[in-house]
Design a protein around this nucleic acid. Structure first.
Lengths: 179, 179
DNA sequence: CGCTTTCGGTTCAATCAACGAACCGAACCT
DNA sequence: AGGTTCGGTTCGTTGATTGAACCGAAAGCG
């Protein structure tokens, strides 16, 4: 997608956001980060993005303060959302909802987000990422997501079948590392 | 930004949205459409996007049902947001808010949106595009936007100075064609 | 009528980014 | 010592973006 080089004179908050987020693969990388993917190899497995491109995107996001790179073992690093990164959740959710409403693929919207830590019992998120039960905008860490057909490995649709994709289809809480 | 070719197996509403919206310039074109820009030449003047790219993006958006191409004079066409396009407003607004909070340029957030048709008197939009006065999510057509420094043509910042940019800095209602 | 301008493009060569395959170094396992 | 995993980098090829030039239809102008 877009690059900073030509956006900078646009005097527009959207253009400034796109300088960081607008390139190809960037928003999908961040979506995976919200889903709990943290490692280079897992992002590769799930996205099929060329190594060089993923390397570049992660470096850009780290430099922009959206991701933080931290070692989890000697010589091994993981990428975790910063506060600015977590703050992207409403934008990502809203964009995804639009995709659900207007770009339906075979099977329609297939993923739900539930407010797991809801004092009012929890419900699937509505427009804007609001919880209809308690009326607040839950932080991503208090959400649980599930695919509507977690075991659709029947070959009728071209589902991905790597370990990361299978883990993401099972119900799990956002931001928690994959098993 | 991103292309459909490699997104299609992602089983994800966000990926489907990005197949249409994820390419370079696309979201800025749509932002201008919300601001009332409708003509090829005006988009060119405001965005400095190559003609071929703008032509391609508009065709993609029309084919995706986000924009509608309609003649306004013999041999002259304009591009107007469809219902699906108008439905993108919360996503664009939320992304722009993120840019305002985390990617502040010189001068900080410089554009406000006010609920002009608000039964409770109106106020600047808050998170998620909600009107704090009446508590609803106003349609883009009932909003008025203004730049916080409409006459900052003092040369201290590299403001654009074409007719479209100047029109967009003045207060005006969204979706209404430029004068 | 002939001339010019505006609008909304298309075509083209050059540049830039993305892709896929190969390679690499550090850490760990056996 | 040999093999594997992880997180890259390098490199040649393919594909997209860019800027400049050109084009056709529809006015406007004298």
């Amino acid at each position: 997608m877009p690059l900073g080089r030509d956006y900078d004179r646009q005097d527009c908050a959207l253009a400034r956001a796109l300088e960081v987020l607008g390139e190809r693969w960037t928003l999908l990388v961040l979506r995976d980060c919200f889903f709990g993917v943290r490692r280079f190899a897992d992002l590769r497995a799930h996205l099929d993005v060329p190594r060089a491109v993923l390397s570049d995107r992660l470096a850009t996001l780290v430099e922009a303060g959206v991701l933080e790179r931290r070692p989890y073992a000697p010589g091994r690093d993981e990428y975790v959302l910063t506060e600015a990164g977590l703050d992207l959740w409403p934008a990502l959710f809203t964009l995804a909802r639009w995709g659900d409403r207007h770009r339906v693929g075979p099977g329609g919207g297939r993923r739900r987000f539930r407010h797991a830590d809801c004092p009012a019992g929890g419900a699937d998120l509505a427009e804007g990422g609001m919880c209809p039960a308690c009326g607040t905008l839950p932080a991503p860490g208090s959400l649980e997501t599930r695919s509507l057909d977690p075991d659709a490995d029947d070959g009728t649709r071209p589902e991905r079948d790597d370990a990361v994709s299978r883990a993401l289809r099972r119900p799990h809480r956002l931001l928690t590392p994959l098993p």
